[in-house]
Amino acid sequence: MAEGGIPVAIEREPRDGFIVAKLDELASWCRKNSLWPMPFATACCGIELMATGASKHDIARFGAEAFRFSPRQCDLLIVAGRVVMKMLPVMQRIWLQMPEPKWCISMGACASSGGVFDTYAVVQGIDRFLPVDVYVPGCPPRPEQLLQAVMDLQDKVARTGTILGREFQGRESPEGPRSLRGELDPSRQIVAPGNFRSSTRAWSLPTVAGRPGA
């Protein structure tokens, strides 16, 4: 293995038209160099995300410039900006619609922890409700930081990726911090009634056939 997890055989010039590599590594090598981000840009970080895509910072250098706005075509969810009560089910739905294998970057303080918005409406970190791979600090992070996050994610893909996505299996319980639902005395809690029709909750979602919940 060379640096960055690229199979050795690929790095050299292939002689006689042969390369020798493990399938897992080959797949990861392809995947990491062609990440297709789904820009879930809700707020200020979205502007820096746009700046990252624009000419000065040019995310294309890392093979991740193909922003697609349809989750079906993406494998990297970049959550840029705060996610609030009404938006969270939408985000979960988009995450569920993305095909495997997929990764998630939580960009900025608000997405990672709620940031300065410790209020009634803002979710205190998307990782409470969604698996996150890389966190980017900053409010908003500089484009360079986002580029670093993409590179870190590439490393992670190269290191852990398998062709059938075995690395994701067996992670059955949510990975984020514990829900803060217990922060209040039960008598104080208002369990918001209804089913949030206007912004469907995750467990009542129609999910892809063959997936849990279908």
Partner: peptide
């Protein structure tokens, strides 16, 4: 949201809410 039951800018509603912001299902990788 339509189903929300309080009026958040009233003074008797706390800044951090009554736990609505955590009332969601957490997704696992699987």
């Amino acid at each position: 949201p339509d189903e929300f039951s309080s009026h958040p800018l009233r003074k008797d509603y706390p800044l951090r809410g009554d736990g609505e912001r955590h009332n969601f299902h957490a997704l696992s990788r699987e």
